[in-house]
């Protein structure tokens, strides 16, 4: 007798591996969004655009003629850092600084406007045709992953590099926020902005630093994603709603929680890709809505005092 697993086992294995790699990318972006929101109390709708621009920048830098193959990986990182370091401070200085005291609806509208601008800027620079550059993936090659008595050939890039970078980010960020002075200052501002400012913490500097870090993380997510997919307009929009789904599901302000939720949503989505492709985009939101219906504060969020 042939069971469901005999027929679909390999597909499931592939879905799990894909899901892990995808979750790593989703985590990189959503943790940045989360950090920025926690400190600035502004949900940056344009966060997904940093991801998109990071991805495009990495693809074009990596595609330059005469670049040695071994350089493809460092170039990815370089592109991301450049994008984050340029866009982050400029936008924080010029735009966000004006609206910290405004009503939430104004803050949302301003970052939404920024999102509209960056989406077209990206189309203007890189066009609307799909862009891809998978040198880094091919350079690292593949490995045979044993699964249920069979083997699945899978790229080392997705199996080791992506989860590795995500894990390093998770550990590094947790260490930074809890063990270093700057990190503790950031946490202090998150917990109680007024008290932190009263104690002489320079909130402006913290905001600038945090926003830039968030932009770098998003751009890094995009840069790392670029060799595994072809880039098309619209990934910025997808990315922002997906990362919002992750932090809403996890609960605002959670780092480890965001990692687990990214894993849950990443796996959910890639299982859908292989078994119900029409529902690929829907699955993360089904998970989010289901979680929020049961736990309005998110999976790992602390229950607030009752909202009357």
């Amino acid at each position: 007798m042939i069971t469901w697993f005999d027929e679909n086992g390999l597909l499931l294995g592939l879905a799990l591996l894909d899901g892990l790699a995808y979750a790593a990318l989703v985590f990189m972006v959503s943790v940045g969004l989360n950090l920025v929101f926690g400190v600035l109390r502004v949900l940056n709708v344009a966060h997904g655009s940093f991801y998109a621009i990071g991805a495009y920048a990495a693809a074009s830098l990596g595609g330059m003629a005469g670049l040695p193959v071994w350089a493809s990986l460092p170039v990815l990182l370089l592109a991301a850092v450049l994008v984050g370091l340029v866009l982050g401070p400029v936008i924080e200085r010029i735009l966000l600084r004006r609206i910290y005291a405004e009503e939430p609806v104004i803050q949302l509208l301003v970052t939404f406007a920024l999102f509209m601008i960056l989406e077209d800027a990206q189309k203007l620079v890189w066009g609307v045709q799909p862009v891809s550059n998978d040198v880094a993936v091919r350079w690292l090659g593949t490995v045979d992953v044993p699964f249920a008595g069979d083997v699945i050939p899978f790229t080392k890039y997705q199996l080791f590099l992506l989860p590795g970078v995500a894990l390093a980010t998770l550990v590094g960020l947790a260490w930074f926020l809890r063990r270093t002075l700057t990190g503790r200052v950031i946490v202090a501002v998150t917990v109680d902005r007024e008290a932190a400012t009263a104690m002489g913490i320079d909130a402006k500097k913290v905001f600038l630093l945090t926003f830039t870090a968030g932009a770098v993380l998003a751009a890094l997510g995009g840069a790392l994603a670029s060799p595994t997919t072809s880039l098309v307009p619209g990934i910025g929009a997808q990315t922002i709603v997906l990362s919002f789904a992750v932090i809403a599901t996890a609960g605002l302000g959670q780092i480890e929680g965001a990692a687990l939720t990214a894993l849950l949503i990443g796996l959910g989505r890639s299982v859908a890709v292989y078994f119900a492709p029409e529902l690929e985009v829907v699955v993360p939101y089904i998970i989010m809505v289901a979680v929020l219906l049961v736990r309005p504060q998110g999976l790992f969020g602390a229950a607030e005092a009752r909202r009357v």
């Binding site: 929101f37 949900l43 939430p104 949302l108 709603v241 809403a248 690929e280 985009v281 829907v282 939101y285």
Partner: peptide, 23 residues
Amino acid sequence: REIFFSMLNLALSMVLYSLLEKF
């Protein structure tokens, strides 16, 4: 309210968009 209200509406509209496109 506020960001959740805005973003949940956005997320649901993206869901509808992709359903309309995929089916």
